[in-house]
Nucleic acid binder design. Structure first.
Length: 491
RNA sequence: CGGGGUGUAGCGUAGUCCGGUCAUCGCGCCUGCUUUGGGAGCAGGAGGUCGCAAGUUCGAAUCUUGCCACCCCGACCA
């Protein structure tokens, strides 16, 4: 037993940490707060990227790339924005190194000080809006629907692999529109894209809602989000879509001439998801044996393991495995035939369970005799013997079933872990005993929100969309409330 | 950034209080043979600036100082 995980029961955050490292997804690097995303973890990100990228293209967006560095002065142009990010910016002050006087080391050359310091982007609104000013003159230039895949840096004090690191990978969409209505529609459209992606690809149910003023993106009018629930009952913000109003257009003086010949500021949105989604994926589904990946995002969907005593048997098995492999590949299913002789079957079984490969096919001498294979599914750990006839079709259906089952399981968990509280005592008790989402009334003030956070560590994750208004009384102050909001302790 | 903890071979560790054949054990790795339907067995072998840097000392994994990294808790955040 080489790679035992800490169990979730023992210590949830150690379990997570163990899993990320032992499943070979990522590791800490020599640079504080920064991670190395290893090939297996990056393969998951690539799958996410390609699905999302297609969804962005399907909704009319194009990719572009903006600089890593942002002149310091750009940052100060939007007051709320700078206030939100100032405390976590990496700053470039010099552009050259030189040998130390003793010739043994190297130091920053004080002669090479930048006239204007550069900020390593924590997000790109400012550089993008400064650029858009030159792209936009007329209503004919609108809308602009750009996305970029990039890295950003936020100087975090406390980091956790994938969930929070000083540098992370993400995509950020930045759009410019002629009207408020259009920008608002764009904001919601992209929130829906994220919701669909989370549910259909990640098999992770999400709650869509609006952030409170306190939780809003620095510089936004409204921040919408998808919130997911992890197995330990903590919430995780999985994606955000912001309606920026004319804040950045005004800050960067981006105007256009309308059909009527009037100069107006343009309307903006921005939206993003990051490698944090990988952390969400892990915590939403996996178990004490390792990762459980939804087939749609699994780098390897099916692994075939031969079981043999001699070369002759291996040759027979490999022939069958080869046929299965090509049939599955022709259906677009990714397959790995692991015929390494350096590890025993049992070892391989554990290894692929740890890595969350959805379906394992084992083929041994008995199967060759009987014209069967043993199929094991990762989500339920069930093993079934299948006839070779129509195997690829059956596997294709099984993958769909697994995708569905993982989602259903996560949805049931979320439903069971969502509670209603009508008093503050009840609220506190639920938080401490069950965790999860708690639907409660709130009087709408930031003061109350902060007070609740101070008392319980719970934050308002969102004000859910599409909910029927329901009059009630704030759990803390007793003041009137028009609808329930969703509280949770969060990542 | 505040409080606490940890750092010894690729990984996990013993030894640190009480300085002196103490660099220990397990996994992994390499070679060979036997094995192969749930993390194989036996035999042999390789591998360590004891996180880094100064200092104290005849002598430092062990004591002192500084630094670095990671983990946990808090504040902040995707």
């Amino acid at each position: 037993m080489a790679k035992q995980l800490t169990t979730r029961e023992q210590n949830y955050s150690e379990w997570y940490q163990d899993l990320v490292i032992k499943a070979d997804m990522a590791e800490n690097s020599a640079v504080r707060g920064c991670m190395v995303i290893k090939p297996y973890g990056f393969a998951i990100w690539e799958k996410m990227q390609s699905a999302l990228d297609q969804m962005f293209k399907d909704t009319g967006h194009v990719n572009a790339y903006f600089p890593l560095f942002i002149p310091k002065s750009f940052f100060s142009k939007e007051a709320a924005h700078i206030e939100g990010f100032a405390k976590e910016c990496a700053v470039v002050t010099h552009y050259r190194l030189k040998n130390t006087p003793d010739g043994k080391g190297i130091e920053v050359d004080p002669e090479a000080k930048l006239e204007e310091e550069l900020i390593v982007r924590p997000t790109s609104e400012t550089i993008i809006w400064n650029t858009y000013r030159n792209w936009i003159q007329s209503y004919r230039d609108l809308p602009i629907l750009c996305n970029q895949w990039a890295n950003v840096v936020r100087w975090e004090m406390r980091t956790r692999l994938f969930l929070r690191t000083a540098e992370f990978l993400w995509q950020e969409g930045h759009t410019a529109h002629a009207t408020e209505k259009e920008a608002r529609e764009e904001t919601m459209k992209m929130l829906d894209v994220y919701g669909t992606f989370a549910e259909e690809f990640m098999a992770m149910p999400v709650l869509k809602g609006v952030k409170t003023a306190n939780e809003r993106f620095a510089g936004a009018i409204d921040t919408f989000c998808i919130e997911a629930l992890m197995q330990d009952g903590k919430a995780l913000q999985a994606g955000t879509s912001h309606f920026l109003g004319q804040n950045f257009a005004k800050a960067f003086d981006v105007k256009f001439t309308t059909k009527e010949g009037v100069q107006e500021h343009v309307w903006a949105t921005s939206w993003g998801v990051s490698t944090r989604l990988i952390g969400a994926l892990i915590m939403a589904h996996s178990d004490d044996n390792g990762l459980i990946l939804p087939p749609k995002l699994a780098p390897i969907q099916v692994v075939i393991v031969p079981i043999y005593k001699n070369e002759e048997q291996l040759a027979q098995i490999s022939e069958v495995a080869g046929k299965i492999t090509s049939e599955l590949k022709s259906k677009g299913i990714s397959v790995k035939y692991d015929d390494r002789d350096t590890h025993k079957p049992g070892w391989k079984f554990s290894e692929y369970e740890l890595k969350g490969v959805p379906v394992r096919i084992a083929i041994g001498p008995r199967d060759i005799e009987n014209g069967t294979v043993e199929v094991a599914r990762r989500d339920t750990m069930e093993k079934t013997t299948y006839q070779l006839m129509d195997l690829s079709l059956k596997i294709e259906h099984l993958l769909d079933k697994i995708q569905q089952n993982i989602y259903t399981k996560a949805l049931e968990f979320r439903d069971e872990t969502t509670h209603v509280a009508d008093s503050f005592d009840e609220f506190k008790k639920l938080l401490d005993t069950k965790g999860g989402f708690i639907r409660a009334h709130w009087d709408g003030t930031t003061d109350t929100e902060l007070k609740i956070k101070e008392l319980t560590k719970a934050t308002i994750r969102c004000i859910p969309l599409n909910e029927k208004p329901e009059a009630g009384k704030c759990i803390l102050t007793g003041n009137p409330s028009i609808q329930r909001v969703v509280f949770a302790r969060a990542y």
